[in-house]
Nucleic acid binder design. Structure first.
Length: 577
RNA sequence: CGGGGCGUAGCGCAGCCUGGUAGCGCAUCUGCUUUGGGAGCAGAGGGUCGGUGGUUCGAAUCCACUCGCCCCGACCA
């Protein structure tokens, strides 16, 4: 295709709105333009990349035996009410009404819709298993959309749903999908990690996230160099006894100290000149199982997901100020486990509390804290558990090696759903004995735009994008450097040759100087570049260059197309495609 | 939702504090020269200064409200 006939609005300067590299380069290279917060238009180059990613996803899912469907974006409220999510999903669900005042939502995910189809159409075990996927638009009214296609509100997602007679068959399919995901991300040129993820409120069995390692990633990953365990920090289990005890020697008796107006650990720590690690942070939660007092070392954070799971609670929230005053007789900031009377609820301690000696905590009266607090002597929790967010210093729960922490971009997710939706929406089948059984489900997602953005995060330099060959908008770009007729004709001839061989070629036929063409070619980042210039052409030669290595080779004009095809094939092979 | 920042030409920005009727770079258009890493010269076009209301003789500038966008945080003990 000819550059002059495509809308490729490249920018010299970084757009003010873009913070991370992939967002900046997608805008600068003319792939996307913003319409509103978290809502983007794809321009020709951007769409080509997205289509490439989609193509790889389609191929691999077809290989895995899944069938493609397309589900509506606008979904009637009744389905969501039936699953119970209409009430639970919150503000991320964009709700709307039609002219008859009927309620709908824009689908943020499609378990309800697909389950509705399956319950109508599937009767027999003979129809199972089945795996249906679509690649379509999702809308989630995110609290804070950011980073271009990385976290948009409207975005393209591959979502697959599998249906099984039993858990064992789901386990089998899960491994098939995991293999398909591995192939997809490898083909997209992404080095990634598969990490254990929390199954959240849905409470299914297994869940794994596919993470592209990148400093700009929004997720934190804990991984173990010892045994290979890797998990989202939200989920990462830590070894209980690994923390070293802080505070030394014999502990004096409890002592009350005035801390007027000092509520936060930070404030009290600075005021008393005692490090946060010697504080016993006391948080009061309200759940459907009642109030819970949760104790954790002052420099650590409670992991809500672990806590929720430990309590077996559906709903978990911080207690309000008034609830805390009522329960402990002291305002927020001054409560603690020692010298408290009549707290009606469970007292749970993170295992880190065992490492606190001679600690500090709230005195359960206004403007006062307690010094020399000793677990076991001054208070005894009902239970100890792993309730904390893994952090540096923690050890692997399995092998005890020190956990390492990195950041990642979640590009895919696979999840053994179980029967949450099939039960709520009564999707059943008849087994061989004619007995009615609930269908067991799996759910799988890949962020298409996010995958493209992640590819840029991992493959760029100061001049622009370095596309993995499999998802580049064009495999080859041809740059005629001068407007001279023989140069233009040679470039056109090479382009024609390549295109007739099935390659996708961007011919920069613009009336621009060589520098402009080089700069834009670097920005756009097609893997193979053919440079046609007067000087080389006088000797019957042109140059083939690689965006990746920046190497240039002189080849005869007549061989250029074939050599470019070779280079492209080599690049694809190198990516494992 | 809380905090911070920003809205001035297509893009990136200055001007605002200390009110006097809008400027720079890039881009665009015309002409000439140039042509292997974002050309030079000459000329030209393009702005409801996000919106509304107020203060004032006079508002991009001060005040209030509002809309949009960006960033940080959403555990406070």
């Amino acid at each position: 295709m000819r550059f002059s006939q495509l809308l490729i609005p490249t920018l010299k300067e970084n757009p003010a709105e873009a913070e991370i590299v992939s967002h900046q380069l997608m805008v600068r290279a003319g792939l996307i333009r913003k319409l509103a917060a978290g809502i983007y238009s794809l321009l020709p180059l951007g769409l080509r990349v997205i289509r490439k990613v989609e193509g790889i996803v389609r191929e691999e899912l077809a290989r895995a035996g899944a069938q493609e469907v397309e589900l509506p974006v606008v979904v009637p409220a009744e389905l969501w009410q039936e699953s119970g999510r209409w009430e639970v999903y919150g503000k991320e669900l964009l709700r709307l009404r039609d002219r008859h005042e009927r309620e709908f939502c824009l689908g943020p995910t499609h378990e309800e819709v697909i389950t509705d189809i399956i319950r109508r159409e599937v009767r027999s075990y003979r129809q199972l298993p089945m795996n249906l996927f679509q690649i379509h638009t999702k809308f989630r009214d995110e609290i804070r959309p950011r980073f271009g296609l990385m976290r948009g509100r409207e975005f393209t997602m591959m979502d697959a749903y599998s249906f099984h007679a039993d858990g064992a068959d789901l386990d089998r399919e899960y491994e098939v999908m995991r293999g398909a995901y591995e192939r997809i991300f490898r083909r997209c040129g992404l080095s990634h990690a598969v990490v254990e993820a929390d199954t959240g409120a849905i409470g299914g069995k297994d869940s794994h996230e596919f993470m592209v390692l990148a400093d700009s990633g929004e997720d934190a990953i804990a991984s173990c160099p010892g045994c290979g365990y890797a998990a989202n920090v939200e989920k990462a289990e830590v070894k209980a006894a690994a923390l070293e005890r802080v505070g030394e020697g014999a502990v004096p008796p409890l002592e009350k100290v005035a801390t007027p107006g000092k509520r936060t650990i930070e404030e009290v720590s600075a005021f008393l000149r005692i490090p946060p690690s010697r504080f016993i942070k006391t948080l009061i939660y309200r759940s459907d199982a009642g109030l819970a007092m949760v104790l954790i070392r002052g420099d650590l954070q409670v992991n809500d997901l672990k806590l929720r799971r430990h309590l077996g609670a559906e709903v978990l929230e911080m207690a309000s100020d008034s609830e805390i005053e009522a329960a402990l007789g002291a305002p927020v900031g001054f409560v603690g486990p020692a010298r408290q009377k009549g707290f009606k609820g469970t007292v749970l301690a993170d295992t880190s509390i065992r490492s606190v000696g001679d600690g500090v905590t709230g005195a359960n009266e206004p403007d006062a804290h307690l010094l020399h607090v000793e677990p076991g002597r001054d208070f005894t929790p009902d239970d100890f558990a792993d309730l904390r967010m893994a952090s540096p210093g923690d050890a692997c729960a399995r092998c005890g090696a020190a956990l390492e922490f990195r950041r990642g971009i979640e590009v895919g997710h696979i999840f053994k759903l179980g029967t949450k939706y099939s039960e709520a929406m009564r999707a059943t089948y008849l087994d061989e004995e004619g007995a009615e059984q609930v269908i067991v489900m799996g759910t799988y997602g890949i962020g298409i735009g996010r995958t493209a953005a992640a590819a840029i995060e991992q493959n760029h330099d100061k001049n622009g994008i370095i596309w993995p060959a499999a998802i580049a908008p064009f495999g080859v770009t041809v740059l005629p450097l001068q407007p001279d007729q023989e140069v233009v004709e040679a470039a056109a001839q090479i382009t024609e040759h390549l295109e007739s061989a099935g390659a996708e070629v961007l011919l920069d036929d613009r009336d621009e100087r060589a520098g402009v063409k080089f700069a834009d070619a670097d920005l756009i980042g097609c893997p193979v570049r053919i440079i046609v210039g007067k000087k080389s052409l006088a000797g019957g030669m042109v140059e083939i260059g690689s965006r990746q290595s920046a190497e240039k080779t002189q080849v005869a004009l007549g061989d250029a197309a074939e050599r470019a095809l070779d280079a492209l094939r080599a690049a694809l092979a190198g990516e494992g495609a």
